[in-house]
Design a binder for these strands. Structure first.
Lengths: 184, 184
DNA sequence: TATCCCATGTAAAGCGTTACATGATTTA
DNA sequence: TAAATCATGTAACGCTTTACATGGGATA
């Protein structure tokens, strides 16, 4: 599913400008499992308009570019409904952190400890954010958004716990490479 | 970190052909958090060779293309060591599944149930695979590879559990949209 | 006899980001 | 006075996939 389709889906739930859609990719549940830049959002909206899947109402503003408010057309709603019933593709996950850990024997103990500390803090920060979100869900958040947020929350909890409980597996080796080799 | 750098890292741990490197991206721990096709691997190896970071020994074979065995040079090892100490970029995670769930009100209950069933099965299959890997680690697997596999295992366990325990949150709404709206 | 495994590689196309261009208003 | 917010958009570049090209041997 490309950014264009996600934009269409967002507009199916309510009118928005390109700027506001960018915000949704930066904050809120969507930001946890999708990213998009202006360079993909604005061209997507232009193309969706050309294809008749969304409509654009321009709102004149002084000292600023006109605000372009997009909304899904009936054709757009149908096109998105057709997309959403398709089987979703596999999750794409790419982790430089885990690659780095696979080669952690090239790091000195202090670097490795710092790496794992930082990553643990990151997951815990996500946990805090998501718990706050779950406690005070935004008004427009449906059951799906909350479910997705809860899903991500459980992953971040698991990640932080795993790192805390198992870091010794790599740190032990980093601390004692010579000793282990000669101690057998 | 691009595919080229990962290839260099793999060759730092042992000689391999392009075909074998592709296998590592399809099986083993690396496959759980990185993907790569021949179209990126072969050009990467060519470029690494041009830059003097890897060396190539051709092994003549009958009725098959010559096997090209690549190995990291001292310069390559140093270049990779420099890369690996850099702070890894944030994990990239993109989930069409979660996007679909955010719009689950557009699905009929049977479609939604099927979607969640399939995804739960997928995570449980990954759990089985990873548990088997952890029980019988391949000979070349270092502590880092096992740590990474354990990390992914804990994520898949958490995902499967979350789906099982919380699917009612979205399925309840899909089953009773009219009733809830009129039930005050 | 069909499919998978081995083994290499290229060209085109897709999808996206980054950096640039513009500029007033509010907040720290 | 520096930075963030609002607000749009384009062009160049980067990275990767997909599809193509080639073809024998082993396995089911």
């Amino acid at each position: 599913m490309d950014i264009r389709t996600i934009c269409l889906g967002v507009l199916t739930s309510g009118d928005a400008t390109g700027y506001e859609i960018k915000k949704m990719f930066e904050e809120g549940p969507l930001s946890r499992f999708y990213e998009a830049s202006y360079g993909s959002i604005y061209p997507a909206l232009t193309r969706l308009t050309e294809e008749g899947l969304v409509e654009c109402t321009e709102l004149a503003q002084e000292k600023r570019p006109d605000k372009k408010i997009y909304s899904a057309t009936p054709a757009g709603r149908m096109a998105f409904a057709d997309e959403i019933v398709k089987a979703p593709s596999r999750d794409k996950f790419r982790s430089e952190f885990l690659v780095t850990l696979m080669f952690s024997d090239l790091l000195v103990p202090r670097q490795l400890a710092r790496l794992i500390d930082d990553r643990t803090d990151y997951h815990l920060a996500q946990v805090r954010d998501l718990e706050e979100y779950m406690a005070n869900p935004s008004a427009d958040a449906g059951a799906g958004a909350q479910f997705a947020a809860g899903f991500m929350l459980s992953l971040h909890v698991a990640a932080a716990e795993y790192l805390t409980d198992n870091r010794y597996l790599v740190e032990g080796e980093a601390l004692l490479p010579k000793r282990q080799a000669s101690g057998g």
